[in-house]
Amino acid sequence: MEERRFGRRLVLASVLAAAGALAASGTALAQQEHVGQYSQADINFGMSLYGDNCVSCHGPGGDGVDGVNLRSGQFRAASSDYELEQIISNGIPDTAMLPGNYNEAELAGLVAYLRMMGSLDASDATIGDAARGEALYNGKGDCASCHRIGGAGSRTGPDLSDIANYRTAGAMSGTLVDPTEAMVPINRTVRIVAGDGTRYEGRRLNEDTYTVQIVDENERLVSLVKADLREYEILTESSMPSYADTLTEQERADVLAYLLTLKGVG
């Protein structure tokens, strides 16, 4: 196929995209604790969204609409995950299935849940509490020492103000357990000694053949020409600590529930 150019939502795009480009991104495929190809975190999140948005028509068993059985894993109007996302986003014209405005995390969650509905035991799901999660974020997790939300906190780590718009539940739960494994490569830490001997360490924002842009440990934007550098090292280890031991599973689920509420100011 010819070459495709994807928008931000390439996950979805992937299937259709297929179209070749497909170096798909943090799709649900990508995560740990897979149930089949879907991460448990996505399924759990999808289940709670289903309860809030879909159950009124489709029913708890997925068979509330005549002729539609969501639990069967077979859809009349969709074969791929991409098409499922299209239906959930755009609705089905001239029916009660209305369009819905869902972000990356929500779509990935709904699709994972719809796909796994038939083989799930609802009691498996651990859905966190966002309010407790926020308290953990600011307290025991000390996340704000590296991250910023709504203008408060450090900028050394990525600003999380609208993280749910572009990362899935599966990806974020992966980050909490094993940040190095789940890290998006562009976010890597770089260590630089400039031509004049100045040392920089920071998070990569952008890079090309000739230059690199970072935010350094003093939260300054720095842009450097690579040919002028004495040393340039890209670290593959994340500087974010793993919370696999310092937070319990329930606490991580709470933090995740909080992260999933972060949708920016629009």
Partner: peptide, 26 residues
């Protein structure tokens, strides 16, 4: 299409072909 090619490292979010002003290819 008959399937979906995935990135080589499933645990990394690896970019597609979109080219904005930020290089998301690494």
């Amino acid at each position: 299409l008959g399937g979906l090619p995935a990135p080589d490292d499933p645990d990394n979010v690896i970019p597609g072909l979109q080219r904005g002003v930020i290089n998301n290819w690494t």
